[in-house]
Design a protein around this nucleic acid. Structure first.
Lengths: 341, 341
DNA sequence: ATGAAAGCGCTAACAG
DNA sequence: CTGTTAGCGCTTTCAT
């Protein structure tokens, strides 16, 4: 077993307190003692037991983070950002995922609270369903920060990409390219990002005096494929803004299967700028979220909340960026507007 | 502040012990008491303090994992696998990274030990430099498991992809396609995977009675580009097995810049099957590591070591898989051998 | 079936 | 400057 502080004290014939102070650099110890203690500790490779320290300090210097899954790199990018910021402040990150299941999510929140993380960062699968639980966590003194998705039933500090603005960018881009019959294939409208993207689309369409055509879809490539087929059956459009890249890739496939050329016969814009967005059959024009920055903002917000510098009503919204590739048809139109912000 | 077990006991007029037992389902408590305690605990949303529990149990039910960085999805895939397995066993994962820096790595090992993780999983940037430290950790009762890279100075249980075998697959594939002048552009030879891949290459070349041509390179796209230029300057070959996909992509660019057609003028095979390997200018034939399985094996090994089922000499090596795309020229040769195992 | 005592390894608060 | 006491929230051990 590893040596304890008390062991060291005994071996050095001083009190545990002296060792504790010397090691932490707390004042009230002579230079000599400090040197002696530190040297010995180093020599025997003493490691303070942070579990014990956490117990008395009532803080663990650790964040818990829950993402819906670890399959999509988006979430891992987020985690990376958080970890980056956390480590600089001496915090660790406890990683877990809910597997897109609110039940599992609430269990995970529970164990993370049991582990006494100092803050809880959640990309909730269903913020409303777990609202009460999260309120309880906050009441227990552990700040809960939501990210990517929020709910009606609960107001927490949060970090989000500007879904509304991003959708507006996408739609405006299509409008500026001269398309008039522009449809929107939504994601699962139970998620706030999908709602906001739809709202951003509608906003710009209204602004441009165009008739919105909204087809309700779901996230995921297969759903995108099916949604696109439904869309193509039900109306005749020149361009489609799809709520998420995977769906857009499915939609692209559907269009091709229907014998349509993209973008000549139908233009497509996605959302997320997934890694493969630039590599698919027709490189996808899309809206990029500042993933890294989102993660960092998330970590910083957590730190800020703990230090009292940030305020519990903080809501950080980061701007998106239009990435123009081929699927929107910009390259074959002359009157291209601004291509990126 | 959150309620403690003692609070509950007081509020229920029983001893803390009774509450503790009732909650954990330890025997020696009447059905009635159990029901009463549990109901109350549930009602007030009691959460046991795992920090306290860990202190007495001398175990945290947490693994620490250190990867070189979080930029390459390979490491995150590994982490995902570990997390998957860990969670099923009630373990959490403490994630950290060394930023490819042995110093930082040793610091990180230190804090993770201080946090009293039950096992330490390390993709070490320099296993030899940190050998002593790791031995100390093991001596302290915390199993250290190395993965991806190992060293000479220390023998730990470990999980690895079959780099030798993979390189052999790659080289053999080229031999079977009829190439004779096959070169190898290595990665940083300080890393065991790079060494093993070079060894696998040499082995097959010898077996085939061919003259090996080894150009020492480094990992990374830019290094691949430069290495390939050196290679092209120094010898005249028909095919190159490159030690890592990023380098292979750089090499591909170099070949194209030199006016060579891939694979007509020069064939290329990489290693890793990165996400974009199939999407680059000439889709890359490469060796795929079973990332997910590696992560799971890693997690399982950690659990096994803790339960005493696995043995400290365990060394798990998982087979790789040849992924044939265009860069090797298989599609334009008739006498293709086995394309995947 | 329940409880009291002691202690996990550390630190805050008070002595001396 | 150094040490003693007490206690963080829980569980193990030994009573009752």
């Amino acid at each position: 077993m590893r040596r304890t502080l008390t062991d060291i004290a005994a071996e050095l014939n001083v009190s545990p307190m002296t060792v504790s102070r010397a090691l932490r650099g707390a004042k009230g110890v002579s230079k000599e003692t400090i040197a002696r203690v530190r040297e010995y500790a180093q020599q025997v490779n003493y490691r303070p037991n942070l579990v014990a320290r956490s117990l008395v300090a009532k803080r663990t210097n650790a964040f818990g983070i829950i993402v819906p899954n670890l399959r999509h790199s988006f979430w891992l990018d987020m985690v990376r950002g958080v970890e980056q910021v956390a480590r600089k402040a001496g915090y660790h990150v406890l990683l877990s995922h809910s597997n897109d299941d609110p039940e599992l999510e609430s269990e995970e929140i529970g164990t993370l609270v049991s582990r006494r993380v100092d803050a809880l960062l959640v990309a909730s699968t269903d913020p409303d369903q777990n609202a009460e639980l999260m309120r309880d966590v906050t009441a227990g003194g552990v700040p809960v920060i939501l990210f990517d998705r929020y709910g009606e039933q609960i107001a927490t500090p949060g970090v989000y990409a500007d879904d509304f603005g991003g959708a507006a960018q996408a739609t405006r881009h299509l409008v500026e390219l001269g398309y008039r019959r522009i449809a929107h294939l939504t994601g699962d409208l139970c998620y706030s990002p999908a709602q906001n993207r739809a709202a951003g689309y509608r906003h710009v369409m209204a602004e441009a005096g165009l008739e919105p055509v909204v087809v309700e879809g779901q996230f995921g490539e297969e759903n995108g494929y099916r949604g696109m087929l439904r869309l193509l059956d039900s109306c005749d459009v020149e361009a489609v803004f799809v709520s998420h890249d995977p769906s857009a890739i499915g939609a692209l496939r559907a269009a091709i299967d229907r014998g349509l050329r993209v973008p000549e016969d139908i233009a497509l814009v996605g959302f997320a700028d997934m890694e493969c967005a630039g590599h698919v059959a027709v490189p996808l024009t899309t809206i990029a979220q500042p993933k890294e920055e989102l993660g960092e903002a998330l970590g910083s917000l957590a730190l800020g909340l703990l230090s009292g510098e940030a305020d519990a009503s903080a809501r950080i919204v980061l701007p998106t960026r239009l990435v123009v590739r081929r699927s929107c048809g910009a390259y074959l139109r002359s009157h291209v507007g601004s291509t990126s912000l």
